[in-house]
Simulated assay, not measured.
Amino acid sequence: MRNKVICLCTGVFLCLGRVRAEVAIRVGHFPNITHAQALVGLANGAFQKTLGDVKIEVRTFTAGPSEIEALFAKALDLVYIGPGPAINGFVKSGGELVVIAGACSGGASLVVRNDLPIKDPADFRGKRIASPQLGGTQDIALRRWLKEHGLAPVEKGGDVRVLPMSNADQLTLFVQKKLDGAWAPEPWAARLVVEGQGRVYLDERTRWPRRQFAATVILVRKKFLSEHPRLVEKWLAAHVDVTAWIKKNPALARALIHQEIKRITTQSLPDAVIAQAWDRLEFTADPLSSSLTRNADSAYELGFLGRRKPDLSGLVDLKPLSKVLLAKGRPPIAP
């Protein structure tokens, strides 16, 4: 009888061991230079090394709203994403999605055709200007800029045709001269310049204090965070280390990012594109919370967050990141 009990207990412990080993984290990101930490850390094994036996399941996306839908469906746990969709996801989920770190600052520009005499905001009247997706980060930035200069999209009674479309379609139509400009993230802004013979009319960094604004943040399901706090902290620890490695080894990082983008998209980027895009980016774990608030205000004013101004007091949770930074002997990031 005693042997049977021992065997039974052993079987239970083995079963529990298998359950623990099968814990996974499901991560989403773009094959995009602004999601550099995801590309580098997954490629060089930094995340897997820090997480140990935890399985990492990865999905790639080309638009933030699609990542939000996957989070709502509980098909993902953590994503690298732009601030626009992150804020929208927080609001629509009733606070069930929260920002826990930053990844990238900068990396967005308004690029126009070089053969057009566009010098002042008034010159955009009657023009066809693209953004990656309706309600996305660059779409909000474009519409806010138009509004500030007394311009408006055609559907709002203005005379600027704002055309949300994929970045790849932007480049194709730009080359064909069927688009006059685009507010695009890197490396697509650089591609419009290098491959599309365009020029940067406006580097978005010039519109922000200290030339810093959140381009990519880390968003997590709050339930996953509460159920697996140590796992999320380990991910953030690796994220911080990868960020430091990228900044210390820019040439190696650029080569690895280039390699991963080519592997995922089957398309190679010209060295000139990577170099130009890199110069307009800053990699940081700071979510730059004040820029998120300003983005949210713009999204609300433009009608993307409903009729009632949302309460964003719980949008950013820096406690896990602060714990990680303190463990590494670094000061926490101020809210």
Score class of each variant (00 low, 15 high):
115 D>E: 12
56 I>T: 02
34 T>R: 06
163 L>P: 00
1 M>W: 14
92 K>M: 03
222 K>L: 12
105 S>M: 05
311 D>L: 03
47 F>K: 02
196 G>L: 09
10 T>Q: 10
174 F>I: 07
17 G>D: 05
51 L>Q: 08
150 G>P: 04
297 D>E: 15
311 D>S: 08
38 A>F: 10
18 R>S: 14
171 L>Y: 07
335 P>C: 06
79 V>L: 08
128 R>V: 10
118 I>C: 03
163 L>W: 01
299 A>S: 14
3 N>V: 11
75 A>V: 01
91 V>Y: 08
158 G>P: 03
9 C>W: 14
234 K>E: 06
132 P>E: 05
55 K>P: 07
236 L>V: 06
223 K>V: 07
189 A>E: 00
266 T>D: 14
238 A>K: 01
236 L>T: 05
307 R>P: 02
150 G>M: 09
325 L>I: 04
184 A>V: 00
223 K>G: 09
319 K>Y: 11
41 G>Y: 11
318 L>E: 02
236 L>G: 03
67 E>Q: 15
181 G>Y: 01
1 M>L: 14
150 G>R: 06
84 G>S: 12
239 H>E: 01
208 W>K: 09
247 K>I: 00
195 E>V: 06
215 A>P: 01
225 L>E: 03
197 Q>P: 03
41 G>M: 10
11 G>W: 01
113 R>M: 02
66 S>H: 11
245 W>T: 01
124 F>E: 03
16 L>W: 12
202 L>A: 12
15 C>L: 09
109 S>K: 07
49 K>H: 15
4 K>A: 13
103 A>S: 12
153 P>S: 09
35 H>A: 01
39 L>H: 04
320 P>C: 06
108 A>R: 07
332 P>R: 08
152 A>H: 02
173 L>H: 11
327 A>R: 10
131 S>K: 08
304 F>E: 05
146 L>K: 10
72 F>R: 10
151 L>S: 05
230 R>H: 15
226 S>K: 15
2 R>N: 11
238 A>W: 00
111 V>Y: 11
135 G>P: 05
270 P>D: 12
177 K>P: 07
88 N>F: 13
133 Q>Y: 13
97 L>K: 02
180 D>N: 10
65 P>A: 08
92 K>Y: 04
60 T>M: 10
113 R>V: 01
75 A>M: 06
290 S>G: 13
152 A>R: 05
98 V>T: 02
149 H>K: 12
54 V>S: 09
135 G>H: 04
194 V>W: 11
151 L>R: 04
332 P>Q: 08
158 G>K: 01
239 H>P: 00
156 K>W: 14
126 G>V: 02
295 N>T: 10
117 P>L: 00
201 Y>A: 10
41 G>Q: 11
328 K>G: 10
52 G>H: 13
61 F>T: 01
